[in-house]
């Protein structure tokens, strides 16, 4: 399958670059890179604006509402967004589309994205972190939690990945 834009980086070189950014993050801040902390804060603040009864005192998200949005991880995720669009534009890979399983139409793709995102959002709170915050950053401190997370991630992912192979295959 042909793709637009420049070739991707070699995965080992991309891994070295990511490891250096991650180390710089630990050195600068004392913690690693994360994303779901920011999505959780955004959800909490958004819910407080439109449906405050969901995030009232004593609820899980109440503390996130109090913290607000002006903290490091929100700025970091904004940086991720800027870095990603810069990378996509520089490599001429920016391409408006509805991506997803090759055998499905646009609406079915968006429905699957919504379902997958919902499972992911629940899972990230369950684990108190996502692939970057728990798997990558936890793993880099050699935390047992990081590797336990990765066992669950690849175990659940492979089981579901093979079950859904008829939908996605042929896309690489």
């Amino acid at each position: 399958m042909t793709r637009k834009g420049s070739a991707l980086w070699n995965p080992y070189l991309a891994g070295v670059a990511l490891g250096l950014v991650l180390f710089a993050t630990f050195f600068a801040t004392g913690h690693g890179l994360g994303v779901s902390g920011a999505t959780t804060s955004l959800t909490a603040v958004g819910a407080a604006a439109v449906a405050p009864h969901l995030v009232g005192p004593g609820s899980y998200l109440a503390g996130y509402v109090r913290m607000g949005l002006n903290h490091w991880i929100e700025w970091e995720v904004l940086g991720v967004a800027i870095g990603a669009v810069a990378g996509a534009l520089a490599a001429r890979r920016f391409d408006p589309m509805i991506d997803g399983p090759t055998r499905l139409g646009p609406l079915a793709r968006l429905i699957l994205a919504a379902i997958g995102g919902t499972v992911t959002g629940f899972g990230a709170r369950m684990a108190m972190g996502c692939t970057s915050g728990m798997g990558l950053s936890g793993g880099a401190t050699l935390a047992a939690a990081g590797f336990l997370f990765l066992i669950g991630f690849f175990g659940g992912g492979l089981a579901a990945g093979f079950a859904l192979k008829p939908l996605w295959r042929g896309g690489e």
């Binding site: 997958g116 499972v119 992911t120 996502c130 336990l148 669950g152 992912g157």
Partner: peptide
């Protein structure tokens, strides 16, 4: 929490194609 949360992110990626960072 850590293990089942990991399973949730794996299943979520297999179904929806991303994790919280890569969807951005």
């Amino acid at each position: 929490g850590t293990l089942l949360g990991g399973v949730g992110l794996g299943v979520g990626m297999a179904v929806g194609g991303y994790c919280p960072g890569t969807c951005v």
